[in-house]
């Protein structure tokens, strides 16, 4: 195990942790979104989905523990990287311009990440740490999201997630060493598509929820 600690404490090692956990999140995000799409099918479909999930509860518990663990790793490593990177340039530039590589998404990763973390906590308080019956959950979702300020918070958060993923998706492939002249444009495109999909998939929920309920 010593070697593993040694490996992940290197610069690339930490990046690998970010990439693997980030990939895990992306996959979770996708599944979560597919599940949530049931909302667009109306209350019944959504309730059936929740019921279904509960039937799988041991698996879900395992997945939840995994996600919490991943979250801890992703957040802690992200924080370490952020601090290390700041320390690597003690004196900054008076004038610094982008040369064309940086995007808004890439430049804001630590900040969007932090916002996502705050949102996640709120999100869990809203929908996870409540009574876990399908009915209660549906009430919570439709109730919370009918509040205008929550609507705005949720839509904004989805924007932030999309931004994070827009850079994060291709970046994780680069970190894992998968950058090839032939395939990278495709990965980049998928990343953007994925971000937009997440934006649409999650972002429309607070808007359409009123009609569904």
């Amino acid at each position: 195990m010593n070697w593993f600690i040694d490996t992940i404490s290197t610069s690339i090692g930490k990046k690998l942790l970010m990439a693997v956990t980030g990939l895990g999140f992306c996959m979770f995000l996708l599944i979560h979104m597919i599940g949530n799409l049931t909302l667009y099918g109306g209350k019944d479909l959504f309730m059936a989905y929740v019921e279904h999930l509960h039937a799988l509860s041991p698996l879900i518990l395992a997945a939840e523990i995994g996600l919490v663990f991943f979250a801890c790793v992703h957040v802690a490593t992200g924080l370490i990287l952020f601090l290390e990177n700041r320390r690597a340039r003690p004196v900054g530039y008076a004038v610094k311009k982008n040369a064309g590589g940086r995007t808004f998404g890439s430049a804001t990763m630590p900040y969007t990440g932090f916002i996502i973390l705050c949102f996640l906590i709120l999100h869990l308080i809203n929908f996870r740490f409540i009574e876990q019956t399908p009915d209660a959950i549906f009430q919570a979702v439709s109730g919370t999201l009918s509040d205008v300020s929550f609507k705005i918070i949720y839509i904004a958060a989805v924007f932030v997630v999309a931004l994070h993923v827009r850079h994060g998706f291709w970046s994780l492939f680069q970190t894992l060493g998968a950058n090839h002249l032939k395939y990278m444009p495709m990965i980049q495109a998928i990343g953007i598509a994925f971000a937009l999909l997440a934006l649409a998939g999650f972002g429309l929920i607070p808007i359409v929820i009123g009609f569904i309920a």
Partner: peptide, 20 residues
């Protein structure tokens, strides 16, 4: 890779400014 850290360089966050 280990030497980079020892010398105090930062970590890559795939921003591609270097390439530019």
């Amino acid at each position: 890779v280990r030497k980079m850290k020892e010398l105090g360089f930062g970590n890559c966050s795939n921003e591609a400014e270097c390439e530019a």
